[in-house]
Each structure stands twice: as structure tokens, then as C-alpha cells.
């Protein structure tokens, strides 16, 4: 995957991490803050977390990789969320997913090289009557037919 330019404010993250210096118990709180402000957990920032909090990178990465909430790749400008809850699964999420992955050239959980889209699979979005459901940013698409996927994607640049 192409190297992406950092678009997070490293300096303010450093300041925040600094306030938890030598506090290994604050790890989750620090990781959450980074995830929410940078949109993901950049490698150099995790190294900084490990050094400042006094934990090995192994431990920091172990903890971070355990939780689905944390991600290690930058997010795209538009976030596609595909529901794989029971109803959506029964109504054919699989085909929608395959089309999305083919059209975007990435696997679920990843971001396109041009940072246009990120694709996530979740369960469940809580609107099972609309299955299969796709959300792009805040827009909900109900009863998605794989053939409609390119049309949906075209709306987001």
C-alpha cells in the first residue's frame, strides 16, 4: 500500500501523551484519544506512547490490536460500513461485500490508496428491515443490490 502523508497533528498528540508520562495504567485512555483525534493509531505515535508511558511496544500493540475499536491504518475521506448482522447476512451481504471489495480494490478493514474510501464490516446497524444495509458516512442505503454499488460510490469523491 502506498505511503500516505500524515494528516494528524503530531505535536498536540505528543502534548497529550506527555500528560500521561510514566502512567502505564492510562494506556487505553491514551489510545482512545489518539484513535479519536488522528482517526487511527499511527506507528510512530504508538512508539512514543510506549516510551512515555513506560511500556514495551509489544504490550502497547498487544492491547491495541485486541480491540476492534482501534485501527492501524489511516481512514479514507468517506467511510463505508457494511452490515453483516444476521438479517443482512441472510439477505445477501456476501455479494455486496464482494462487489465493494472488487470495485475499491481493497479488503474490508482497509483504506484505498487514494484515501477516498475506507471499508468496514460491522454487525449490526440495527435497521434489519432494510437489509442488506450499507452506510456511507451518514447516508443509509437500504436493500442494496450489488449492481447498485458503483452508482453509490460515484456520489462520493
Amino acid at each position: 500500500m502506498a505511503q500516505l502523508v500524515d494528516d494528524y497533528d503530531r505535536e498536540s498528540l505528543t502534548c497529550f501523551i506527555q500528560t500521561h508520562r510514566n502512567q502505564p495504567a492510562s494506556l487505553i485512555q491514551v489510545l482512545s484519544h489518539i484513535q479519536q483525534t488522528a482517526g487511527y493509531l499511527p506507528k510512530p505515535v504508538l512508539v512514543e506512547v510506549s516510551e512515555k508511558l513506560g511500556l514495551s511496544l509489544t504490550e502497547v500493540y498487544s492491547t491495541a490490536s485486541f480491540y476492534a475499536f482501534f485501527t492501524f491504518r489511516p481512514r479514507g475521506r468517506h467511510n463505508i460500513v457494511l452490515c453483516n448482522g444476521t438479517a443482512c447476512y441472510v439477505k445477501g451481504t456476501g455479494a455486496v461485500r464482494a462487489t465493494l471489495e472488487r470495485e475499491l480494490g481493497i479488503r474490508a478493514g482497509d483504506t484505498t490508496a487514494d484515501r477516498r474510501f475506507s471499508l468496514d464490516v460491522v454487525r449490526c446497524l440495527g435497521c434489519c428491515a432494510l437489509a442488506p444495509v450499507v452506510m456511507v458516512d451518514k447516508d443509509v442505503y437500504a436493500g442494496v443490490d450489488p449492481a447498485k454499488v458503483p452508482e453509490i460510490l460515484n456520489k462520493y469523491q
Binding site: S56, T58, E59, Y61, S62, S65, F66
Partner: peptide, 8 residues
């Protein structure tokens, strides 16, 4: 601490 558990 070269190795540790990852993912789940």
C-alpha cells in the same frame, strides 16, 4: 518483551 499476543 520481544513477543506478545496480538489480535484476538
Amino acid at each position: 518483551e520481544a513477543v506478545g499476543p496480538q489480535l484476538r
